[in-house]
């Protein structure tokens, strides 16, 4: 082993990131894979900077892993080292749970403007919390941009329809969709000019109808139009 190679354990000790988490980052393409897989696999030492940069971008900048992946694609090694320097001490932060949640929420809220967060609390005789509930935790946001024209209640109805369709599809397929892509036959159903559903295998006519209905719902959500436009 050279100084340019590290085991996963060494990488974990150097970065303060659990080995399990490092593995998942490798699987997501954020870190380079080992030179040779298997027992005692060696990873490029440059993964240490990348792992620290992920920590910094996640914790300090509140970015999602997919967003970090996009930034890595455009970043120079110099830029990644700069981010790594922001990561702080390598021990796991032991902050309060609520502080941790607020970071996750800040991250999740960015790409998901449609989420509604309805909070209601029982009367004061029951609750003893001193804080005002709605203002304190409300994450409701007005539909904006792409979703502005989309009526909230209708969205709820569409989502319920999608849920029903998924249940019907599960019944038809008798199991949740397999996780691993195998086989070469794919059925493609267009949703919008930029988006399509790709389904592994040939579909029975009944399955095809259900997936086309699902595509209709997606189209309605994305375009703000009615389902049967």
């Amino acid at each position: 082993m050279t100084e340019h190679e590290l085991t996963l354990e060494e990488l974990s000790e150097r970065t303060g990131v659990e080995a399990r988490t490092l593995r998942s980052w490798v699987a997501e393409g954020l870190l380079s894979p080992p030179f040779k897989p298997g027992r005692g696999a060696r990873y490029p030492a440059s993964n240490a900077d990348r792992a620290l940069a992920i920590r910094a971008l996640k914790d300090a900048h509140g970015l999602s892993l997919s967003e970090i992946g996009r930034r890595f694609m455009m970043a120079t090694e110099e830029q990644i080292r700069e981010w790594a320097l922001e990561a702080g001490p390598t021990t796991t932060p032991k902050g309060a749970a609520r502080e941790y949640l607020s970071k996750i929420r800040a991250r999740v809220n960015k790409p998901e403007p449609v989420k509604a967060y309805v909070l209601r609390k029982v009367t004061k005789s029951v609750s003893t919390s001193e804080q005002e509930p709605s203002a304190q935790m409300s994450m409701s946001s007005e539909p904006s941009g792409f979703f502005r024209a989309y009526d909230f209640e209708k969205k709820q109805a569409d989502l319920a329809s999608i849920e029903r369709l998924i249940l019907q599809l599960q019944e038809v397929l008798e199991a949740p969709a397999p996780r691993r892509a195998r086989g070469a036959v794919w059925t493609r159903i267009s949703v919008t000019p930029d988006l399509e559903l790709s389904l592994r295998g040939d579909l029975e006519p009944r399955e095809r109808i259900l997936f086309e209905q699902l595509a209709d719902h997606f189209r309605a959500i994305l375009t703000g139009g009615t389902k049967n436009d």
Binding site: K115, A116, L119, V126, S127, P133, M137
Partner: peptide, 8 residues
């Protein structure tokens, strides 16, 4: 699709 806190 939403979250409701019934008892806090």
């Amino acid at each position: 699709s939403d979250v409701q806190v019934h008892l806090d």
